[in-house]
Design a protein around this nucleic acid. Structure first.
Lengths: 113, 113
DNA sequence: CGTATCGATTGACAAATATCGATGCAACTG
DNA sequence: CAGTTGCATCGATATTTGTCAATCGATACG
């Protein structure tokens, strides 16, 4: 697959024919980029890693001591993951249990490989 | 795998034993988060998609018209991808040809699946 | 040589983000 | 009921990000 121009453009005319096009639809790209963005922080990526290793649910009070940030900051990160649809939570009395939504990472994972 | 506390903590004592730990090392998480962050924008994700579909190299002048942003903005996005180690470029005369670095996405892809 | 073109860089600016401490709220304990 | 606990939200602040127009450096063309 060879493309791209070899000569300077004749002035006025376009540099080259547009030969390449994306395979992903714009909406798909936006959805996947949102997921990727949410994973684009070491704390959040690690959070997902921890949650994924547990089929069950993990209490927030167990997550907080794993990172050197305040409780409110961690809560903020969890919210970002929730907003991106990667995790969800369930409240039980005082405690909140988080878990990774099944298939949340599927599309991005498929695209990546 | 059951964890997490069931009773309010006795005052002074910790809420619960830390039972869960991440499987990824901190350095790994940081590396992967950096990649994910770079992919966390629709334009950049689409750029990678376009470049990936071409074993060869793609000229910047072909990439610009694919997006509704200025040339300088696209250049900025390409730099982000370069800084993250996802793509690299080669200059040939006036033109710059970009390509996805092999294996750049491997680690993240493996972790995701 | 002088001029046009490609692509990167700079400077500016608004918007989004990460972080914290303080506060709020629901629910448990005594 | 009063006090305490777990977690979310708010307000403030510093940093990062996306974007553009303008400029720059190198290269090509005439």
């Amino acid at each position: 697959m060879t493309l791209a121009p070899k000569q300077k453009r004749p002035a006025g005319k376009p540099c080259c024919e547009p030969v390449v096009y994306p395979d992903v639809e714009r909406a798909d790209a936006e959805r996947m980029a949102e997921i990727a963005k949410a994973l684009g922080d070491p704390i959040r990526l690690t959070l997902v890693d921890v949650l994924r290793k547990h089929a069950g649910r993990v209490c927030v009070c167990e997550l907080v001591p794993l990172f050197f940030v305040s409780q409110s900051t961690l809560s903020h990160h969890l919210k970002k993951l929730r907003d991106a649809g990667i995790v969800d939570s369930e409240r039980k009395g005082l405690w909140a249990y988080y878990y990774v939504r099944p298939d949340a990472l599927k599309e991005l994972s498929a695209w990546l490989s």
